[in-house]
Design a protein around this nucleic acid. Structure first.
Lengths: 237, 237
DNA sequence: AATCTTCTATGATTTTAATCAGTCTTTTTT
DNA sequence: AAAAAAGACTGATTAAAATCATAGAAGATT
């Protein structure tokens, strides 16, 4: 992992305003900044592996990271896609356990590593920040419970429709009525998000395309009929 | 909900040592205790509903509570079974959002309600306690990610075997080689934990019984072959 | 440019689990 | 005690999704 100590300081970081650092005082941001390292950032690079010991947290400045678990059958389940402003690995740190998941860069990224001590010191000396982090953690727990419920109670078709809408709202770029998902994911990765076989995703995407719900622009997906997907995603919504 | 203010004080509560209150100072426990109410406690009673505003947290002194979500198809997914020493509802409080799930008593229970202010004040004035709560929250997030991965990547048979082993380790009472799960759950509730149809659970339990993995004692399940279930629960373990 | 590899796509088949239908049993209510 | 309701169970059928097999397309490598 190539590291370039003290690259862009956090004070000047553009993605800070999207992050949990947004409310830190200038002084505290500087303390963090003094200890951080910018690490690189190529697609496919691993930030950490499940089962290893966390030594700090990762703060995403740019790019996209998939957080995933490998099931006992060897298949990958993506539990979260993280982007600029997101923190990674703090749950393991705060839970005082080894990483319970792994993280890999899926879109070239700039990521800062903040050592455990710097992060925890800031946390403990700044209750507001501690509350902010805990708030995020609580929110993520609710999201995960929702995903579990969807996984057991919804069909693959419904889940894919939902995932596409969600990706569009997070990575979408406008184009009139259309929303292009500005993120390249392989069919296999989409399958890992939905939690199904790659072939099922390929088939369903073909079906969605045939039904004029989506359109394909190279590797990227364009949402043509948001309302239609929303209807598909949830029978009762 | 019948309330009997200031029943057993927290200082003397037997389930405290199992809870996150275990490390609070005597004085802090008393402060909490002065504000708490013992609420009742019949099977079927609801503690809170998804979507409503949390006004405090619940601390289970005895009994069992299911925490669940209702999916859009109307079916219930149990995300957690809570027992003595467990706290409920703090994630919503700390996440500053409405409850993202509901809680219902499944085994007659004694439960204390601690108002929001008393809980948050203690939390903010005692960093150790705050850390303890955050640790728990982080841990639960990891557990939920594991459940999601199991739900998408394992078969119903594997998941049921795993759930039985887990229930045995939590609610099991010894009897030589056998572990009796000392908790009455309907087939429908087991289905809600595993995330499947009731009929599937009934069929699989019959199969497990036929294969001498379990035995039924009235409504309770006795694990006869832990190793066999473990093998079934995870092809690669 | 040719070759190799990975990814996408489609068809056929099998497996898994849901749904539907009905019976028997247990529990609750009257 | 009888009736009603809820829960447990079994079988048949349908539906959903996984798996297997193969082919074509796109990217990467030499």
């Amino acid at each position: 992992m190539s590291t370039q100590p003290k690259n862009t300081p956090c004070e000047l970081c553009a993605s800070r305003k999207y992050s949990m650092f947004a409310d830190l005082s200038e002084q505290q941001v500087c303390t963090i900044s003094d200890h951080k390292n910018l690490i690189s950032h190529r697609k496919g690079q691993i930030l950490y592996y499940e089962g290893t010991k966390p030594l700090g947290i990762f703060c995403i400045n740019a790019g996209v990271v998939k957080v995933y678990k490998i099931a006992s059958n060897g298949k990958e389940q993506i539990v979260h896609l993280a982007q600029k402003g997101d923190f990674l690995g703090y749950a393991a740190l705060l839970g005082e356990e080894n990483y319970t998941n792994s993280a890999m860069i899926v879109e070239d990224a700039k990521i800062c590593f903040i050592p455990k001590e710097a992060f925890l010191n800031t946390l403990l000396s700044n209750t507001q920040f501690f509350k902010r982090v805990t708030k995020q953690l609580s929110h993520e727990l609710g999201v995960m419970e929702e995903k579990l419920t969807d996984a057991t109670q919804k069909s693959i078709r419904e889940r894919l429709a939902y995932v596409l809408l969600h990706l569009a709202s997070t990575y979408g770029i406008e184009g009139g009525d259309n929303h292009k998902i500005d993120l390249v994911l392989s069919r296999e990765e989409i399958a890992s998000i939905v939690g199904t076989a790659t072939e099922s995703i390929i088939r369903l995407l073909s079906e969605f395309k045939k039904d004029n719900l989506i359109e394909l622009d190279g590797k990227k997906i364009i949402i043509k009929d948001k309302r239609g997907l929303a209807r598909l995603s949830d029978f009762y919504a």
